[in-house]
Amino acid sequence: MSILWALIRRDLTLAIRQGGGVGTALGFFLTFVVLLPLGLGPDQALLQRLAPGALWVALLLSVLLSASTLFQQDYEDGSLDVMALGAAPLELVALAKSAAHWLSAGLPLAIAAPLLGFLLNLNPAGIWPLAISMITGSLALSLIASIGAAVTVGLRRGGLLVSLLVLPLYVPVLIFGVSASAGGPQIATAALLILLALALVSLVLAPLAAAAALRAYLK
């Protein structure tokens, strides 16, 4: 357990003190939101209808892009070999890195999204459902992205491959995330529960899959 905390703390420290972490992901999110009305036209009613879905797609892409190199640096400088030889199993390392990524990227993005929603004329009544569903969903997103990051860790041009592998797995999170933040009260509750279930299932399965893929590269 203390190893888990140590790994999470290490990654959080790196994310905060190194450039290219949280700030860049937020910047990407902001740019996406600014570009959207330019592409769709400034119609306020249209933007209000599209806002939850558009914010979810933006969340998906920013989490994916920031997590696609989750293991890259540690793999290249050899830290990952040391972690693999250490006392903690590789599954725990993968879990710790996904958790740190969620805390440093997914959570800030999920909290910032409803605020950016004002730019898209988001319905004020939809702010809380959106925030809660995004906080839940981003955990699943970070975990699923860790599988893609592990699968492509040793590849020189893995960036596009990660998107091709991970985005199809994001589909259920997107569907239930949007209906949890934009559906009626009953649908929203049911969708939120399914979203929570998706997060819990990926909490169990994603570290296993990521560790299996990492082992293929560490041999």
């Binding site: 592990a150 592998l165 199809p168 797995l169 899959a209 893929a213 293929a216 041999k219």
Partner: peptide, 13 residues
Amino acid sequence: RAALVARVVALAG
């Protein structure tokens, strides 16, 4: 190595 990685991808999908 491709075989080891592809197993994970197939099962995740």
